[in-house]
């Protein structure tokens, strides 16, 4: 599969392709962490890989990789270096040599604060995750389709069989209200 086809498949949320790519890059990525950066704990290697792959996924989803010239793998390893820097910052360790041979990915926003944010924000995120679990359909779908998959109101109306986009808009408003109510419980 060509780079462009893979990017398109990921953007469309093709779980099979995402899963395949996740598995395909993992051994080499983990070996690279162990060999080049002497990270011995396999759990740490897997965590850094997961974070890097997550950043890759969301950058693709948010249309930041449309014109990617390098391979997805090269880009992933570039992300890996930056995620690793964040990791080491968390661990308060020095990794000066990480600046060597940095991949040319300066055109891409790396989601700098994807994994580290304030405790308040983490708390809210956890509360919303719990509230979303409790939400019934169609609210769960409405929120997913709009905030996660960036569907238009027209598309949501079509997918959920609403009469028109005005109905979908109203439904979304009510679903957000419902979510807020669940947060208060």
């Amino acid at each position: 599969m060509e780079n462009t086809a893979k990017i398109l498949a990921i953007k469309e949320g093709d779980q099979k392709v995402i899963h395949e790519l996740y598995n395909a890059f993992q051994p080499k990525f983990v070996n690279w962490l162990k060999g080049r950066y002497k990270i011995k704990q396999i759990e740490t290697c897997h965590e850094i890989y997961q974070r890097s792959f997550t950043v890759l996924y969301f950058n693709i989803k948010k249309d930041k990789l449309n014109d990617l010239q390098a391979s997805i793998e090269t880009y992933l390893f570039g992300i890996g270096k930056m995620v690793l820097k964040e990791w080491w910052r968390e661990e308060k360790k020095q990794m000066d040599e990480l600046d060597e041979n940095m991949a040319p990915i300066e055109e891409v926003d790396i989601f700098g604060n994807l994994f580290d944010s304030t405790d308040d924000k983490n708390l809210l995120t956890n509360q919303i995750a719990a509230a979303m679990e409790k939400l019934d359909e169609p609210c769960k779908s409405v929120i997913r389709l709009f905030y996660w998959e960036r569907n238009s109101m027209e598309a949501i109306a079509s997918k959920l069989n609403y009469k028109n986009e005005q109905v979908a808009k109203k439904k979304k408003y009510l679903c957000i209200k419902k979510l807020k109510e669940l947060l208060k419980q």
């Binding site: 969301f58 924000k121 809210l124 995120t125 979303m132 905030y147």
Partner: peptide, 13 residues
């Protein structure tokens, strides 16, 4: 709220 909802997606992924 929207930022937190987006972050839930990251946790979900």
């Amino acid at each position: 709220l929207t930022q937190a909802i987006e972050k839930v997606e990251i946790l979900d992924f």
